[in-house]
Amino acid sequence: MNDDRRPAGAFKEELTPEQLLKVIFEFTAKIATADRLESVLILMADMGREMIVADRCAVWLIDEERRELFTVVAHGGGEIRIPYGSGLVGTAISEDQSIIIDDAYEDPRHNSDNDKRTGYRTKAIMTIPFRNNEGRVIGAYQAVNKLTESGVFSDKDMEYLSLAASYSGKSLEAFMLREEIVETQREIIFSMGEIGESRSKETGSHVRRVAQYSYWLALGLGMSEREAALLRDASPMHDIGKVAIPDAILHKPGALTDEEFDQIKGHTLIGHQLLRHSKRELLRAASIVALEHHEKWDGSGYPQRLKGEEIHIYGRITAVADVFDALGSARAYKQAWELDRILALFEAERGRHFDPRVVDSLIAQLPRILEIRDQEAEV
């Protein structure tokens, strides 16, 4: 088994104070803007590794429900799970103590299973628990194999990684709180979307399907996963303005008068006004969807008769998702259309009602969209 001896030229130097500050500023700025837990953990692990010149660094978290410790970041590996309290990291977390050892294989607490599985030789290890704002241990940093000539971690390394751990614990708690707030926003938006749809006898399944269709259409257009997810979470509010339309008009069995149809069309402006003043990105996106999902590519839509790319991409995507689902869904007043008939309509309206690129994305993403339609079928 490799004992990790390196030729002199392969060793790295300790960071200078200036280099250390640069690493800290660079990574804390990136962590502050990360939008996924996995990204936050990767950045934290990378920051710790560079600060103390280690070969690998992992950020371990506690899975309270399963009574396990897990890391989604292990340089050179994937997710690892171990029973709570096992191994060096388990000891550090359960006993709330920092640990430095020069050779893991001389310490009976070291769990060598992962080394056996991967062929990696763990030697020097440093493990430091981190806490949330209430002082409760929520995880630990673990650095493996010092890359300088000494080959072991020092008290200075402990000081530096403790600094990273203190920052990381607070950042993780803030991130998780932010995620909880966003998830609450999503639930509220979805519930409000269901209310808007129920006013016109649509269903919660329709809202879920339109949300998922919008997400995949956006990805098919080359939008980032983050923006596609934002649209997915905002699209359920597209008909929220219908809460202000009288039932007598929404549920009128016969043809609408011009005046009544104008009132129906007003739901786009009402929804926009309800949401437009929010400072939350999600609600601002929802206000755009509410306002523009009935605009048409050729300028004949409402409420602003926008044309082509004057229509926000969110509105263009939601229009396709909404119409596709409406046509394929059975209602008391109509039968569901067959798929061939729906696709023929989109081909006919490509460049008239709908953005041609979004229609192309619909065709490209059709297998995924049909799978969603089956999964979210109405009972």
Rank of each mutant, 00 (worst) to 15 (best):
A228S: 11
A344M: 11
S198C: 04
Y302Q: 02
L221T: 06
I189T: 06
F11L: 05
R36N: 08
E106I: 01
K30L: 15
E347H: 08
R331M: 07
V207N: 08
L15H: 10
P253V: 08
D103A: 01
D3S: 10
S287I: 10
L231V: 12
E64H: 00
A34D: 10
Q375D: 09
V144A: 00
L275F: 14
V182I: 15
A74V: 00
L275M: 12
R136K: 13
L37K: 10
R109C: 04
G328I: 03
F175H: 05
A234M: 06
P356W: 02
E202G: 14
T122C: 03
S154W: 01
E173I: 03
T71Q: 01
E79N: 01
H293I: 11
M158W: 02
G193L: 09
L69T: 01
G241C: 09
I125D: 00
R56Q: 09
R136V: 07
T257Q: 04
V207W: 11
L370A: 02
D262P: 00
G328E: 04
E197M: 13
D35R: 13
V182L: 15
E68T: 01
I342N: 08
L339Y: 12
D63G: 00
D35G: 05
D96N: 15
S287N: 11
Q212E: 15
P236G: 06
R352Y: 14
F11A: 08
Y105F: 11
L161E: 00
R178E: 14
K265C: 08
L231M: 05
R284M: 10
I181F: 13
H110P: 03
V144L: 08
A326V: 12
Q304L: 15
G169E: 04
A244N: 05
S287M: 09
I138L: 02
H238G: 03
E260G: 11
V207L: 12
A377C: 01
S39Y: 11
E14I: 15
E159Q: 07
F346A: 08
R276L: 05
K334F: 09
E18P: 00
E183H: 13
P108G: 04
H75N: 02
R226K: 14
G299V: 09
E134Y: 03
A164P: 01
A332N: 10
L231I: 06
S198D: 07
F346M: 12
I288F: 07
L250E: 06
F153R: 00
R209V: 15
E187M: 12
N114W: 13
Y120A: 07
V59A: 02
P253W: 12
A54Y: 05
R6G: 02
T122I: 02
R178H: 09
K30D: 14
D107Y: 07
G85H: 06
G266R: 11
H206S: 14
